[in-house]
């Protein structure tokens, strides 16, 4: 079942494009990465499916229910962490979290326990005023606020900003745990490294449109690899130029560089026969793939 499904979802702010004709499916139990640069429409999509803003056209469902009609019912099982967290400055962290918990049907005992568990894990002092918390600590309040009711769908909008690497690590583990428990996660980010670490599938959004949805593993597998070979004597170009999937062969004295896309076996068979002094195969990371889409 699709936990989130949008159909030709569009949002315009006057004449300005937010998102346009977005068709997206997030499946149950997956961690879906939603990547794109600032202004591509990630937050607009999230805010639309949460009914904070209303679509110009198209529709969206969460848990199979229309978001404009069943908003409150849907949100009972959604945890949302906005990219910028703002809370009531004169409240203590614990008061804010209790206020947040009060909106959900979950028994107070459970949420109270969960608040303290999460605060311990993330190393947050609950008795400080929100006003006195650093940016990163406010973000922790945001994380706890989004997770305290054990939602079935967790929506994270650029969640790691302001968190130090140690807390980031703990946060990722926490998300993985929630995911194992059965929660579906929509993870929006422009930091590809973290998406690569955490997500199963990614959707790439560009100028308000979803231009590619793939498994991370596929995305990396299907991509081109760069080979750099060095031998004691010049390597004949023809050895490789006949292999299907090889391109851009450049010979420089005893070195040979080329791009390859296909079954690695085809290349390694040939390489095995050579007397090499050096071999370099560079894995493209998500960043390179991403740049490819944004060219």
């Amino acid at each position: 079942m699709n936990i989130i499904e949008t159909t030709k979802l569009s949002k315009f702010y006057g004449n300005e494009r937010g998102i346009e004709g977005l068709d997206m499916q997030v499946e149950e139990g997956e961690i879906f990465g939603f990547i794109g640069p600032n202004g591509a429409g990630k937050s607009t999509t999230i805010r639309t499916i949460l009914s904070i803003i209303h679509p110009t056209s198209g529709s969206a469902t969460i848990f199979g229910k229309d978001v404009t009609k069943f908003g409150p019912e849907i949100r009972e099982n959604v945890g949302y962490l906005p990219s910028e967290v703002f809370y009531y400055d004169n409240m203590k962290a614990i008061d804010l979290l209790r206020y947040s918990a009060s909106f959900y049907k979950k028994p107070q005992k459970e949420t109270e326990k969960r608040i303290h568990e999460l605060a311990n894990l993330l190393d947050l002092n609950l008795h400080k005023k929100i006003d006195d918390l650093s940016f990163g600590n406010r973000k922790k309040v945001g994380i706890i606020q989004g997770l305290l009711h054990q939602p079935k769908l967790i929506i994270l909008d650029e969640p790691t900003g302001g968190l130090d690497p140690l807390i980031q690590q703990k946060f990722f583990n926490l998300i993985r745990e929630e995911n194992k428990r059965g929660a579906t996660v929509l993870f929006s980010s422009h930091i590809l490294g973290e998406v690569q670490r955490l997500c199963d599938r990614v959707g790439i959004i560009k100028e308000g449109k979803l231009i590619e949805v793939q498994k991370i593993s596929e995305l990396l597998k299907n991509s081109t690899k760069r080979f750099k070979l060095a031998a004691k004597a010049p390597i004949p170009k023809t050895l490789f130029s006949t292999i299907k999937g090889v391109s851009e062969i450049v010979q420089d004295h005893n070195e040979l560089n080329f791009l390859f896309r296909g079954h690695l076996k085809d290349v390694t068979k040939v390489i095995a026969k050579l007397d090499l002094v050096n071999l370099e195969v560079s894995e493209p990371d998500l960043e390179e793939i991403f740049l490819h889409y944004y060219k």
């Binding site: 949460l50 904070i52 949100r75 949302y80 703002f86 909106f103 959900y104």
Partner: peptide, 17 residues
């Protein structure tokens, strides 16, 4: 103005309530 609307409106309550 306090930018807390995102927090509130993501809770399971209707705007009418």
């Amino acid at each position: 103005s306090g930018k807390t609307a995102d927090f509130l409106l993501s809770k399971p309550i209707s705007r009418n309530r």
